[in-house]
Design a protein around this nucleic acid. Sequence first.
DNA 1: GATATCCCCTAACAATGTTAGAGACCTCGA
DNA 2: TCGAGGTCTCTAACATTGTTAGGGGATATC
Lengths: 231, 231
Amino acid sequence: MGSQMKNDGVRSVWLRPRRASRGEPPLSLSRIVDAAVAVLDEEGIERLTMRRLAERLGVVAPSLYWHVETKHDVVDLAVDAIFGDLTLEAERTSHWRKDVTAVLYGWRSVLLRHPWAAAVPARQRPSVGPNFLAQMEILQATLARAGFTGTALSAATWALYNHVMGSASTETALHITDEERRVGQEKLRSESDRYPTLAAQGYLYDDDWDGAFATGLDYLLDGLEAQLTRP
Amino acid sequence: MGSQMKNDGVRSVWLRPRRASRGEPPLSLSRIVDAAVAVLDEEGIERLTMRRLAERLGVVAPSLYWHVETKHDVVDLAVDAIFGDLTLEAERTSHWRKDVTAVLYGWRSVLLRHPWAAAVPARQRPSVGPNFLAQMEILQATLARAGFTGTALSAATWALYNHVMGSASTETALHITDEERRVGQEKLRSESDRYPTLAAQGYLYDDDWDGAFATGLDYLLDGLEAQLTRP
DNA sequence: GATATCCCCTAACAATGTTAGAGACCTCGA
DNA sequence: TCGAGGTCTCTAACATTGTTAGGGGATATC
């Protein structure tokens, strides 16, 4: 019954951690964001708590609110931070397909390295941090250079965005244990009269996500290319 | 300060709602799911709580746990339920593109009518309820009939799935007030040196989501068609 | 040396998902 | 008719969460 915070109240001054022995302050926005990314990577998004985050920084939860307005801010900042690892130099070869592909594979690598990230835009709000906007700029500039304009450009951008984000998010959300997969397969097969195609095809077991991503992307790019050469 | 649940404790037996005057029991799985969909539609996903859900059913929260194991179950069931409105009869015209398009627009209409739904698969787990599986079966059967097999079939299915889900989820997550949009536009324009293409293009303001969805889908289908006619 | 500002602290709050366990009601066999 | 068991809802409580109110120490500024 409420036994977990009692001793904190009695903690004597001598044992209290002295304000960060020297130099750098214990807290700063960038330290918070770095710690948040670490927690998210190691423990997943549903384990990211203001208290856990604070603990990792040697601080208590309310202290974070001096630097941050809300927990959503932390997550938004974390998402944007991981896109900061990507290059800002768009490739500019003579093959726009290659250039676009390079950008998107960069995104994908980020999203797979930080499996919690793909779901965030759907969860609260599409990212509009500087790092992500920079990536969007690169993508759209590449497409514009390829010849897309107006609504075609907009549609192409969103289609590619959705493919990358959607693939990563379903893939990471579907990371299921082999056991669960076996059970699901069993169940699907037992109802193969209702789902004949799914059962035959092995829906959800085939886990060649990289292949599915690449092939799907090729479909999309084929369609985009056709749009360019046609009208 | 804690004034909203106090009178419940004193509520006399006479005022206590008598076990559903007659006939149907107050609770059942399907009544719970229906109520959940209603709450989600009216108040959004972050306002769906077990207590609110229970209240709508004239019941208290713990009672729900007799029928349901966890809140995730409720949401999963709600997602599957709304796909139950769709037809189970796949169209079988001679144009597979039309048939596929019909299926996907059905999905889209469901997701737009229930704007909370698109984010759920990313949030917790892709839907594998019977209604949604039935829709997947229809889609994949249609594609199979069109000539796709093996990994191509799988990639096509996921690409289309991601396009529909991704579009709906970014679109609903991005439903921003005009004010927010204006501010964002302002900011982007003020940094147009950093994001020249985005600023020129009007990234995030152009809100012709239907157009973007349709055009993007056409790109994808063009690519798929090319794949079919080629080897 | 006083004052203000910055930054972290303790304490507490309301809200949430969920569990433990009591008891009302119904069914059914003896 | 009685009682046992099952079905379902209740009250009570818990731990955990995001967040706020406000105290107070350190540091800079005059």
